[in-house]
């Protein structure tokens, strides 16, 4: 168990640049009445960012972009299951189970 000074400084710098975008909006927005258009725009962020994160989970960057077909295959029933149960926990468990089963049977 050890830690070098240079590593400590590097981690501290990375912590600072990570914390900044997380905290800044909370400091800016409390002193600012945001215009309606901006509030509307922010209202679209959850759906947009969650979609982008989902997509980033099944594509590999590069030219041309490639797809992770195994993930896509399991995603379809997982979406249907989420729509049916409306439960975060059950959907995560269901998805993991399907993925494990697919790997078990496909080798």
């Amino acid at each position: 168990m050890s830690i070098s000074i240079s590593m400590l400084l590097l981690i501290a710098a990375c912590a600072a640049v990570t914390a900044l975008p997380r905290i800044l909006p909370f400091l800016i927005i409390r002193n600012l009445k945001l215009p309606n258009q901006v509030m509307k725009w922010l209202g679209y962020i959850p759906v947009c960012i969650l979609t982008a994160l989902v997509v980033s989970n099944f594509i590999e960057e590069g030219e041309p972009v490639s797809f992770d077909w195994q993930t896509i295959t399991i995603m379809v029933p997982t979406i249907l299951f989420a729509i049916w149960t409306k439960s975060l926990l059950l959907t995560v468990l269901f998805g993991m189970l399907l993925m494990a089963a697919l790997r078990f049977f496909m080798g």
């Binding site: 969650l50 979609t51 099944f58 729509i83 995560v92 494990a100």
Partner: peptide
């Protein structure tokens, strides 16, 4: 850990969160 489908937990979670948003 892939044997237990653990790597899919995150994808499934984002998917479910998206579905709940749209719902």
């Amino acid at each position: 850990p892939e044997m237990f489908g653990l790597d899919f937990a995150l994808t499934a979670m984002f998917l479910a969160l998206l579905v709940l948003q749209l719902d």
